[in-house]
Amino acid sequence: MNIFRFAGDMTHLLSIIVLLLKINATKSCAGVSLKTQELYLLVFVTRYLDLLYSYISLYNTFMKLFFICSSGCVIWYIREHKTVSQTYDSAQDTFRVLFLACPCMILALTVNHDFTVTEVLWTFSIYLEAVAILPQLVLLQRTKNVDTLTGNYVFLLGGYRALYLLNWIYRILTEPGYRQWIVWISGTIQTAIYCDFFYYYIKSWRNNERLSLPS
């Protein structure tokens, strides 16, 4: 594992910790999209089915379990927690997730390496992860004065993807025969989706202003 991959994973881990801390400390999930969190849970469950039949390393196993449990935990907070659930604004979080999930499933059934249940579900998870942030970005755009921690959460999530791009470039240069086209193309699209957000995040940070995305 190279430094970019490790830094990417740690950024991903940190983004989730920031989100959980925000929810727990403020007892509020204002500005957090439940739809995006549900999509991530679906992404993690369909991708990490291999926990049941393949072992890579203790590190991978731990991280996979952490990602599944933490997104489940965020969803639990938003849906079930007595005070946090009251701060969820479902009227703003209206993205139609089936518009994302269905095309991803059709694409996974069409473009995959192997037409088996686990391989199609894995491919589905790669496609879905690329677009799962969209409900969150739309919600941020509707929220005037985005909460600092929510902004940081999305920034760290985007940072994790950018570091994965560097990881792939490093692997291409150092591992002969290394290639994974589905992951590369989806990951590049996923990172590109954050570009606009990065621009406004850095701008607000430099001007010392609260983040607000233009609609």
């Binding site: 991280m63 990881n167 290639r179 086209w181």
Partner: peptide, 10 residues
């Protein structure tokens, strides 16, 4: 055709 990389990333 060469094999795709093993699923060793997260």
């Amino acid at each position: 055709e060469a094999q795709e990389a093993p699923k060793d990333e997260l």
